[in-house]
Amino acid sequence: MKLLLLFVPCVIALWVPLYNFEPPALFGLPFFYWFQLLMIPLSAVAIFAADRIGKT
């Protein structure tokens, strides 16, 4: 379970066809950019959750 939490954000970030388009824009930023910016806190949450699971 711990490794899956770390694996999923990596695969999503590296699977470029998933987010390689411009619309929908958010605050003037194309989807390509704001999706990557959204992945930063989501990856941090996944790392934190994997760490908590690993310490139990």
Score class of each variant (00 low, 15 high):
C10Y: 01
V8F: 00
L14Y: 12
W15T: 15
P41G: 09
T56G: 10
L4C: 05
Y19L: 02
A13V: 13
C10L: 15
I47L: 14
L18H: 04
V8C: 02
I47D: 03
Y33K: 11
Q36Y: 10
P24F: 14
V11L: 15
P30L: 12
L26I: 08
V11P: 00
A25G: 07
P41L: 05
V11C: 08
F32D: 08
A13S: 14
E22G: 03
W15A: 15
L37I: 11
L6C: 09
W34I: 04
S43N: 11
P30Y: 11
V16P: 05
P17S: 09
P17F: 13
V16H: 12
A44E: 06
M1D: 06
F48V: 13
T56P: 00
L4Y: 01
L5Q: 05
D51M: 07
A50P: 04
A46W: 04
V8K: 00
A49V: 11
A25D: 07
F31D: 06
I47E: 04
V16F: 15
V16E: 14
Q36F: 10
G28M: 07
F35V: 09
L26S: 07
A13M: 13
P30M: 14
L6R: 08
A25N: 10
M1E: 04
F7W: 10
A50K: 01
P17L: 09
N20D: 15
K2F: 00
C10H: 06
F21W: 11
A49H: 04
I47A: 15
I12T: 07
F27E: 06
F7M: 12
V8Y: 00
E22M: 08
A50E: 08
L4M: 10
A46D: 01
Y19K: 01
A49S: 13
P41V: 06
L5I: 10
A49L: 14
L14V: 14
K55A: 12
S43M: 14
F7D: 03
A44M: 14
Y19W: 15
L42N: 05
I47S: 03
L6Y: 06
R52T: 15
L42C: 11
A50S: 13
E22F: 07
T56C: 03
A46H: 06
A50H: 03
L42M: 12
D51R: 14
Y19E: 00
F31N: 04
W15L: 12
P24D: 09
G54P: 03
W15K: 01
P9Y: 02
A49K: 11
V11F: 10
A49M: 12
N20A: 14
K55V: 07
Y33T: 09
F21L: 06
I40T: 08
